[in-house]
Protein backbone atom coordinates (compact mmCIF):
# COMPACT_ATOMS: atom_id res chain seq x y z
CA UNK A 1 0.00 0.00 0.00
CA UNK A 2 1.36 3.41 -0.96
CA UNK A 3 0.79 5.63 2.12
CA UNK A 4 2.24 8.70 0.42
CA UNK A 5 -1.01 9.04 -1.57
CA UNK A 6 -3.10 9.24 1.63
CA UNK A 7 -3.22 13.03 1.58
CA UNK A 8 -4.55 13.01 -2.00
CA UNK A 9 -7.74 11.15 -1.00
CA UNK A 10 -10.94 13.22 -1.12
CA UNK A 11 -12.21 14.19 2.38
CA UNK A 12 -14.41 11.84 4.42
CA UNK A 13 -17.80 12.83 5.81
CA UNK A 14 -17.03 15.04 8.78
CA UNK A 15 -19.91 15.19 11.26
CA UNK A 16 -18.04 17.37 13.70
CA UNK A 17 -17.51 20.29 11.31
CA UNK A 18 -18.48 23.10 13.68
CA UNK A 19 -20.69 25.09 11.29
CA UNK A 20 -22.89 22.05 10.59
CA UNK A 21 -23.71 21.33 14.25
CA UNK A 22 -26.16 24.24 14.81
CA UNK A 23 -27.96 23.31 11.56
CA UNK A 24 -28.31 19.67 12.67
CA UNK A 25 -29.61 20.84 16.07
CA UNK A 26 -32.20 23.14 14.49
CA UNK A 27 -33.44 20.34 12.21
CA UNK A 28 -33.70 17.86 15.12
CA UNK A 29 -35.49 20.46 17.29
CA UNK A 30 -37.96 21.24 14.46
CA UNK A 31 -38.79 17.57 13.85
CA UNK A 32 -39.34 16.89 17.59
CA UNK A 33 -41.40 20.07 17.95
CA UNK A 34 -43.51 19.12 14.90
CA UNK A 35 -44.52 15.83 16.55
CA UNK A 36 -45.69 17.66 19.69
CA UNK A 37 -47.37 20.55 17.79
CA UNK A 38 -49.62 18.27 15.75
CA UNK A 39 -50.89 16.70 18.99
CA UNK A 40 -50.23 13.22 17.73
CA UNK A 41 -51.26 10.91 20.51
CA UNK A 42 -51.69 7.18 20.48
CA UNK A 43 -54.35 7.38 23.22
CA UNK A 44 -56.56 9.79 21.28
CA UNK A 45 -56.51 7.39 18.30
CA UNK A 46 -57.44 4.46 20.60
CA UNK A 47 -60.19 6.54 22.29
CA UNK A 48 -61.72 7.43 18.91
CA UNK A 49 -61.99 3.79 17.79
CA UNK A 50 -65.65 3.46 18.90
CA UNK A 51 -66.58 6.56 16.81
CA UNK A 52 -64.71 5.10 13.84
CA UNK A 53 -66.56 1.81 14.28
CA UNK A 54 -69.89 3.70 14.48
CA UNK A 55 -69.04 5.62 11.29
CA UNK A 56 -68.16 2.46 9.36
CA UNK A 57 -71.36 0.80 10.58
CA UNK A 58 -73.33 3.71 9.17
CA UNK A 59 -71.47 3.47 5.85
CA UNK A 60 -72.52 -0.14 5.33
CA UNK A 61 -74.49 -1.42 3.62
CA UNK A 62 -74.23 1.28 0.95
CA UNK A 63 -77.48 2.78 -0.27
CA UNK A 64 -77.82 2.35 -4.05
CA UNK A 65 -81.24 4.05 -4.30
CA UNK A 66 -79.74 7.15 -6.04
CA UNK A 67 -77.31 5.21 -8.22
CA UNK A 68 -78.58 6.86 -11.47
CA UNK A 69 -77.79 10.31 -10.16
CA UNK A 70 -74.43 9.13 -8.76
CA UNK A 71 -73.43 7.62 -12.13
CA UNK A 72 -74.37 10.74 -14.09
CA UNK A 73 -72.39 12.89 -11.60
CA UNK A 74 -69.49 10.48 -11.89
CA UNK A 75 -69.53 10.75 -15.69
CA UNK A 76 -69.64 14.55 -15.38
CA UNK A 77 -66.65 14.38 -13.00
CA UNK A 78 -64.69 12.37 -15.55
CA UNK A 79 -65.70 14.79 -18.30
CA UNK A 80 -64.51 17.76 -16.21
CA UNK A 81 -61.18 15.98 -15.69
CA UNK A 82 -60.87 14.97 -19.35
CA UNK A 83 -61.71 18.38 -20.86
CA UNK A 84 -59.57 20.23 -18.28
CA UNK A 85 -56.63 17.89 -18.92
CA UNK A 86 -56.87 18.12 -22.72
CA UNK A 87 -57.01 21.94 -22.61
CA UNK A 88 -54.15 21.98 -20.09
CA UNK A 89 -51.97 19.71 -22.22
CA UNK A 90 -52.54 21.79 -25.36
CA UNK A 91 -51.75 25.05 -23.59
CA UNK A 92 -48.78 23.66 -21.66
CA UNK A 93 -47.13 22.34 -24.84
CA UNK A 94 -45.95 25.69 -26.28
CA UNK A 95 -45.30 27.05 -22.78
CA UNK A 96 -43.05 24.05 -22.02
CA UNK A 97 -41.02 24.68 -25.18
CA UNK A 98 -40.31 28.21 -23.94
CA UNK A 99 -39.70 26.85 -20.42
CA UNK A 100 -37.08 24.39 -21.65
CA UNK A 101 -33.47 25.55 -21.31
CA UNK A 102 -32.47 23.81 -24.53
CA UNK A 103 -35.43 24.86 -26.72
CA UNK A 104 -36.33 28.35 -25.52
CA UNK A 105 -35.56 31.00 -28.16
CA UNK A 106 -34.31 33.49 -25.55
CA UNK A 107 -33.70 33.96 -21.83
CA UNK A 108 -36.60 36.39 -21.27
CA UNK A 109 -39.18 33.93 -22.63
CA UNK A 110 -37.51 31.12 -20.67
CA UNK A 111 -37.82 32.95 -17.34
CA UNK A 112 -41.35 34.15 -18.15
CA UNK A 113 -42.55 30.64 -19.06
CA UNK A 114 -40.85 29.17 -15.97
CA UNK A 115 -42.55 31.79 -13.78
CA UNK A 116 -46.00 31.01 -15.24
CA UNK A 117 -45.50 27.27 -14.80
CA UNK A 118 -44.26 27.73 -11.21
CA UNK A 119 -47.21 29.97 -10.32
CA UNK A 120 -49.73 27.48 -11.71
CA UNK A 121 -48.02 24.57 -9.97
CA UNK A 122 -47.41 26.05 -6.54
CA UNK A 123 -50.92 27.43 -5.91
CA UNK A 124 -53.01 24.41 -4.73
CA UNK A 125 -55.91 23.33 -6.96
CA UNK A 126 -58.41 23.99 -4.18
CA UNK A 127 -57.40 27.66 -4.17
CA UNK A 128 -57.76 27.81 -7.96
CA UNK A 129 -61.19 26.17 -7.61
CA UNK A 130 -62.33 28.78 -5.08
CA UNK A 131 -60.97 31.52 -7.39
CA UNK A 132 -62.89 30.19 -10.40
CA UNK A 133 -66.09 29.50 -8.40
CA UNK A 134 -65.99 33.14 -7.25
CA UNK A 135 -65.18 34.52 -10.71
CA UNK A 136 -67.06 32.31 -13.19
CA UNK A 137 -69.66 30.87 -10.81
CA UNK A 138 -70.60 27.46 -9.44
CA UNK A 139 -70.58 24.45 -11.75
CA UNK A 140 -68.45 22.32 -14.08
CA UNK A 141 -66.78 25.28 -15.85
CA UNK A 142 -65.02 26.24 -12.63
CA UNK A 143 -63.84 22.63 -12.33
CA UNK A 144 -62.62 22.52 -15.94
CA UNK A 145 -60.66 25.78 -15.55
CA UNK A 146 -59.12 24.56 -12.29
CA UNK A 147 -58.01 21.27 -13.82
CA UNK A 148 -56.69 23.13 -16.86
CA UNK A 149 -54.52 25.48 -14.76
CA UNK A 150 -53.32 22.60 -12.59
CA UNK A 151 -52.42 20.57 -15.71
CA UNK A 152 -50.49 23.50 -17.20
CA UNK A 153 -48.44 23.65 -14.00
CA UNK A 154 -47.83 19.90 -13.98
CA UNK A 155 -47.29 19.22 -17.69
CA UNK A 156 -45.50 22.53 -18.28
CA UNK A 157 -42.77 21.44 -15.90
CA UNK A 158 -42.50 17.79 -16.92
CA UNK A 159 -42.73 18.48 -20.68
CA UNK A 160 -39.95 21.09 -20.33
CA UNK A 161 -37.78 18.60 -18.44
CA UNK A 162 -38.48 15.93 -21.06
CA UNK A 163 -37.28 18.32 -23.79
CA UNK A 164 -34.14 19.10 -21.79
CA UNK A 165 -33.32 15.41 -21.29
CA UNK A 166 -33.51 14.53 -24.99
CA UNK A 167 -30.32 12.98 -26.45
CA UNK A 168 -28.51 15.97 -28.01
CA UNK A 169 -26.99 13.78 -30.77
CA UNK A 170 -29.88 13.77 -33.28
CA UNK A 171 -30.46 17.49 -32.63
CA UNK A 172 -26.80 18.18 -33.37
CA UNK A 173 -26.99 16.06 -36.54
CA UNK A 174 -29.94 18.07 -37.90
CA UNK A 175 -28.42 21.40 -36.84
CA UNK A 176 -25.20 20.46 -38.57
CA UNK A 177 -26.85 19.93 -41.94
CA UNK A 178 -28.63 23.29 -41.68
CA UNK A 179 -32.13 22.13 -40.72
CA UNK A 180 -34.26 24.92 -39.21
CA UNK A 181 -35.28 25.23 -35.55
CA UNK A 182 -38.85 24.03 -36.22
CA UNK A 183 -37.68 21.03 -38.24
CA UNK A 184 -35.23 20.08 -35.48
CA UNK A 185 -37.97 20.38 -32.87
CA UNK A 186 -40.45 18.29 -34.84
CA UNK A 187 -38.03 15.69 -36.19
CA UNK A 188 -35.62 15.17 -33.30
CA UNK A 189 -36.80 16.72 -30.04
CA UNK A 190 -40.50 15.81 -29.92
CA UNK A 191 -40.17 12.21 -31.22
CA UNK A 192 -37.38 11.55 -28.69
CA UNK A 193 -39.38 13.07 -25.82
CA UNK A 194 -42.65 11.39 -26.83
CA UNK A 195 -42.67 8.60 -24.18
CA UNK A 196 -42.17 11.16 -21.39
CA UNK A 197 -44.80 13.47 -22.89
CA UNK A 198 -47.38 10.67 -23.05
CA UNK A 199 -46.43 9.49 -19.56
CA UNK A 200 -46.84 12.96 -18.04
CA UNK A 201 -50.14 13.48 -19.89
CA UNK A 202 -51.58 10.21 -18.57
CA UNK A 203 -50.40 10.95 -15.02
CA UNK A 204 -52.01 14.37 -15.24
CA UNK A 205 -55.30 12.75 -16.31
CA UNK A 206 -55.15 10.37 -13.31
CA UNK A 207 -54.35 13.31 -11.04
CA UNK A 208 -57.18 15.36 -12.59
CA UNK A 209 -59.75 12.60 -11.96
CA UNK A 210 -58.76 12.50 -8.26
CA UNK A 211 -58.72 16.31 -8.03
CA UNK A 212 -62.08 16.76 -9.75
CA UNK A 213 -63.73 14.71 -6.99
CA UNK A 214 -62.39 17.07 -4.31
CA UNK A 215 -63.18 20.18 -6.36
CA UNK A 216 -66.89 19.40 -6.16
CA UNK A 217 -66.66 19.99 -2.41
CA UNK A 218 -66.16 23.72 -3.06
CA UNK A 219 -68.86 23.86 -5.73
CA UNK A 220 -66.79 23.27 -8.85
CA UNK A 221 -69.22 20.62 -10.15
CA UNK A 222 -69.16 16.84 -10.38
CA UNK A 223 -69.57 14.08 -7.85
CA UNK A 224 -67.93 16.07 -5.04
CA UNK A 225 -71.16 18.06 -4.74
CA UNK A 226 -73.11 14.79 -4.23
CA UNK A 227 -70.59 13.59 -1.66
CA UNK A 228 -70.71 16.85 0.30
CA UNK A 229 -74.51 16.85 0.31
CA UNK A 230 -74.67 13.23 1.52
CA UNK A 231 -72.12 13.92 4.29
CA UNK A 232 -73.83 17.16 5.36
CA UNK A 233 -77.15 15.31 5.65
CA UNK A 234 -75.49 12.44 7.59
CA UNK A 235 -76.54 10.02 4.80
CA UNK A 236 -73.36 7.98 5.26
CA UNK A 237 -74.79 4.91 3.46
CA UNK A 238 -75.36 7.10 0.40
CA UNK A 239 -71.87 8.57 0.84
CA UNK A 240 -70.53 4.99 0.81
CA UNK A 241 -72.07 4.42 -2.63
CA UNK A 242 -70.45 7.64 -3.89
CA UNK A 243 -67.03 6.73 -2.40
CA UNK A 244 -67.30 3.28 -3.97
CA UNK A 245 -68.18 4.83 -7.35
CA UNK A 246 -65.19 7.23 -7.09
CA UNK A 247 -62.92 4.32 -6.19
CA UNK A 248 -64.07 2.36 -9.27
CA UNK A 249 -63.62 5.40 -11.55
CA UNK A 250 -60.10 6.13 -10.28
CA UNK A 251 -59.20 2.45 -10.58
CA UNK A 252 -60.48 2.23 -14.19
CA UNK A 253 -58.62 5.42 -15.21
CA UNK A 254 -55.38 4.19 -13.59
CA UNK A 255 -55.64 0.75 -15.22
CA UNK A 256 -56.40 2.15 -18.68
CA UNK A 257 -53.65 4.77 -18.50
CA UNK A 258 -51.19 2.15 -17.25
CA UNK A 259 -52.11 -0.06 -20.24
CA UNK A 260 -51.71 2.82 -22.70
CA UNK A 261 -48.37 3.75 -21.09
CA UNK A 262 -47.16 0.16 -21.47
CA UNK A 263 -48.14 0.11 -25.14
CA UNK A 264 -46.28 3.38 -25.81
CA UNK A 265 -43.13 2.12 -24.08
CA UNK A 266 -43.27 -1.16 -26.04
CA UNK A 267 -42.98 0.77 -29.30
CA UNK A 268 -39.74 2.38 -28.10
Amino acid sequence: MNNSNFSKLPPRFNFSKSYYVPIYLVIIYFVVKSFSQVELSFSSIINSLPEMKQFFQELFPPDFSRIDSVISSLILTFQIALVGTILGIFISFPISIFASRTQSPNKFLYFLARAVVSLFRTVPDLIWAIFFVVTVGLGPIAGVLTIMVDTIGFCGRFFAEAFEEVDPGPVKALNAIGAGKLSTLMCAVIPSALPSLVNSSLFSLEKAVRSSVVLGLVGAGGIGVELKTAMDMFRFDEAATIILAIFILVLIVERVSSWVRGKIMEVG
Binding site: G169, C187, A188, P191, P195, G268
Partner: peptide, 9 residues
Protein backbone atom coordinates in the same frame (compact mmCIF):
# COMPACT_ATOMS: atom_id res chain seq x y z
CA UNK B 1 -20.76 11.30 -36.28
CA UNK B 2 -19.09 8.89 -33.87
CA UNK B 3 -22.53 7.89 -32.67
CA UNK B 4 -25.05 7.54 -35.49
CA UNK B 5 -27.30 10.30 -34.02
CA UNK B 6 -30.48 8.85 -35.51
CA UNK B 7 -33.85 9.50 -33.88
CA UNK B 8 -34.48 6.09 -32.32
CA UNK B 9 -38.24 6.44 -32.08
Amino acid sequence: FQKHNLVNR
